[in-house]
Design a protein around this nucleic acid. Structure first.
Length: 418
RNA sequence: UGCAUUGAUCGGU
């Protein structure tokens, strides 16, 4: 069991959930009795890959096998359902765990608080802080960090600042994670300059995330030179840039149309022994397309594969987007087909870009077919995709069909309108 | 042997 658990943990960390399921089956076949750890590992994997239904089934199976769920099991499930914004189910599990004499811990509550914050419900999250205190469970640094992150994400910097003070009063001093969230908040509010100053004199030593957040902020504000200088600065101060730092800057150069500089940076990171991942290549792909260098982009795709990077859905989407914007919808569709052939699953973006462009080209029939295909083949039922098609039908003067489609979406509860 | 927080790449209005 120990050996299997270790292997399973390894597999879920590498996001190889199918392999993990297969290994679990193998355990059972070889009559190796899984324990609570086994199930916690598997549940976490399923929750992280959004397979909540399977997670719930696994809980049932666990009980059938006479294995008693402990707090880590419930925490994994509660975290999964909270992240999916299904708080009803999350609270059901909370009640169930209490009923089974398994006390909710600070981790349990922090998971829910995190879900609430990510769902944009920071008010409810703060309320839950009080509730957990009432129940004798004190929020810790993680809990406060989750709240600060949520407030910063919602650009409520004043409230975030108050929370920094409050946590200190309660004996939890803001750490580098707390401050990094705040830095990101400043950047989001277009206060990059303050973010830079904050970085320079924050009460704890900035880490690679702090620098990267500011570099990214500077890039998004169009100040590529300062961003570049910040890269040197962090190295001088003994903080080694990592793959995310480089990718941020590479993307900044790409978005600013400076593909040459981006390529140069890709070279220097290679020379410094920092291995790039798909992200940097995807940024470059997008840039080449935006500049209309379709041929170069194709070369890049080949080059990526040669270096051992299999293009992912973002790579293909970057190509599809570029080709659509260049009004080469036929070619975009060809890339789409190639992606599917290669076993890469398209997502909402892939479809919505194509559908939008097909609508513009008045190829409404094909657009309609694609939306149906997305639903039937991949269970993609995002309101975004329907909105694009509805917009296309309306602009194409086919109001009746648009209305009929909208009614169908509502009647058959295909997805919630926004 | 298992659980929670921060940074990078693609999409419509």
């Amino acid at each position: 069991v120990f050996t299997y658990n270790k292997l399973l943990l390894q597999l879920t960390r590498e996001h190889r959930h199918d392999k993990a399921s297969a290994m679990f089956q193998e355990m059972i076949d070889k009559s190796c009795q899984p324990d609570a750890f086994t199930f916690a590992i598997l549940l976490r994997g399923l929750c992280r890959s959004n397979q909540l239904e399977k997670a719930r089934q696994l809980l049932g199976r666990m009980k059938e096998m006479g294995c008693v769920p402990d707090d880590a099991i419930y925490n994994a499930l509660i975290s999964g359902y909270s992240k999916a914004k299904d708080f009803g189910q999350a609270f059901k599990f909370l009640a169930e765990m209490v009923k089974n004499h398994c006390l909710p811990t600070v981790v349990t509550y922090t998971n829910i608080v995190d879900g609430l914050c990510k769902a944009g419900r920071t008010k409810d999250a703060v309320k839950l802080l009080d509730e957990m205190r009432d129940k004798g469970c004190s929020p810790n640094i993680y809990t406060y960090n989750v709240i600060v992150e949520g407030l910063c994400e919602e650009r409520k910097l004043d409230e975030a600042k108050k929370m920094l003070e409050e946590m200190a009063v309660r004996g939890y001093f803001p750490d580098v994670v707390t401050y990094n969230s705040f830095i990101k908040g400043l950047c989001k509010c277009d206060r990059v300059d303050e973010a830079r100053k904050f970085l320079a004199r924050m009460p704890v030593t900035p880490d690679v995330v702090s620098y990267t957040t500011v570099i990214n902020g500077l890039c998004k504000s169009g100040d590529l030179d300062s961003a570049s200088r910040m890269l040197d600065q962090m190295s001088n101060r003994g903080c080694t840039p990592d793959v995310v730092t480089y990718s941020s800057l590479i993307d900044g150069f790409c978005k600013g149309g400076e593909v040459e500089r981006a390529m140069g940076l890709l070279d220097s990171m290679l020379k410094l022994g920092c291995r790039p991942n798909m992200v940097a290549y995807n940024s470059l792909l997008g840039a080449l397309h935006r500049l209309g260098h379709i041929g170069k982009a194709e070369d890049m795709l080949v080059e990526m594969e040669r270096r051992g990077f299999t293009p992912d859905v973002v790579s293909y989407n970057a190509c599809i987007d570029g080709l659509c914007k260049a009004e080469r919808v036929k070619k975009a569709k060809a890339v789409f087909d190639r992606m599917v052939e290669r076993g890469c699953t398209p997502n909402v973006s892939s479809y919505s870009m194509l559908v939008e462009e097909l609508c513009k080209k008045k190829e409404l029939e094909e657009a309609i077919t694609l939306v149906e295909q997305a639903r039937e083949k991949y269970q993609i039922v995002d309101i975004l995709l329907y909105t694009v098609l509805l917009d296309g039908l309306c602009k194409g003067g086919r109001f009746d069909e648009a209305c009929a489609l909208f009614s169908k979406v509502l009647d058959e509860k295909i997805c919630e309108p926004d």
